[in-house]
Design a protein around this nucleic acid. Structure first.
Lengths: 191, 191
DNA sequence: CAGAACTTTCAGTTATTTCTGAAAGAAGCA
DNA sequence: TGCTTCTTTCAGAAATAACTGAAAGTTCTG
């Protein structure tokens, strides 16, 4: 390694236009992330790694995004847990480097899979519990089928059916071995 | 109207189990909302309206969710803008009442449509702008096609292609007249 | 094993988002 | 028009989420 600097020194000089474009990509992706419940910084870290296209180390993120070491570390860990980046090493360098998944469809699959697992599954489990509260025989006490309870149950069941379909879809197309999502999407969008 | 009370008094007494279930549904939906970048309260307002199944007025939300009038008003407006609830009136009552879209698939379509419009479209527009920064002839100055720029452009274009497909899909299935989403989803999930 | 290089953790701080409440604005009514 | 009822707005307060930086932890290396 030639560089004794803290941060990665690319061999080639990066054209000004590309640097500018990267910057703006990072900002745009960060904004998108925050609209979807992801911290802006975490999204920016991902964006930088994705658009740069090469492995970067913690110090790169710190200097390029002006964030603290702690923040960089936590954001990177979270991204690893989402499965959208991975660790690498450079020979003769003890630092850890990180690389982004470069296949956009694979990225999308990871995000969907993870969100289903973290947010939808627990919700569905909760709704099932709820169901037992009002489905049992307690709902028809005193021989009355109870219109209020019946209507409540129907709304709940509609919701559950919707999510059941979504979970099936996601397992079918987005799961670990989930091939075919891209194909299916393109077919469908073609009419 | 019999009731002189501030809040709506339902004709039928609501079974204890249903009240409990509603409460928990509201909490679960609120949590889900906040994971997806929607304020918890706004999601709770929607949840309450959806699961209750009848028209409610501002004071109902205030008392049932323990929120201020201002908060109720703003949350309701936001939900109207999302197109997932609508205004109603009760004869002889000057208050405004609100009703939730009760078809879960229509609800889902509204959410997707609105998110595409608010978040994805602006992002895509931004990415197109970015494209002009590095696609022009500036990228191949000095006769060199410039590997860095080319790789950058490829990543950007992959991203754009992905979003283009998504937008087509959403127009196809989720747009105003978007019928067929439910059917398509069920077909696909059935294998 | 001691020290250097690097990473993680977390208590405290800062930034952002969300909420409140009171005042201003409509809209119906007599 | 003036009164009443209801709705909206928004500056400031409160709650929540995100970030920092230094200390503790880990891993490699000689």
């Amino acid at each position: 390694m030639v560089s004794t600097d803290a941060t990665t020194q690319p061999a080639d000089p990066i054209p000004e236009a590309v640097l500018e474009a990267r910057e703006r990509f990072v900002a745009a992706w960060g904004q998108m992330g925050s609209a979807w419940g992801i911290s802006r910084t975490m999204a920016e870290v991902h964006a930088l790694l994705f658009i740069t296209g090469e492995a970067l180390c913690t110090d790169d993120f710190m200097s390029r995004l002006s964030i603290s070491r702690g923040n960089a570390s936590m954001s990177l860990r979270a991204l690893l847990e989402w499965g959208v980046i991975s660790r690498t090493h450079k020979r003769g360098d003890r630092k850890e480097y990180f690389e982004a998944e470069s296949d956009v469809w694979a990225l999308f699959r990871s995000i969907v899979r993870e969100r289903m697992k973290r947010e939808v599954e627990p919700l569905v489990a909760g709704l099932y519990d709820l169901r037992t509260l009002t489905h049992g025989d307690s709902g028809k006490r005193a021989n009355r089928p109870d219109a209020v309870t019946a209507a409540h149950n129907e709304r709940l069941d509609d919701m559950l059916e919707f999510f059941a379909t979504m979970e099936k879809l996601s397992q079918r197309f987005v799961s670990p071995s989930g091939r075919g999502l891209e194909t299916a999407a393109k077919l469908l969008s073609r009419l």
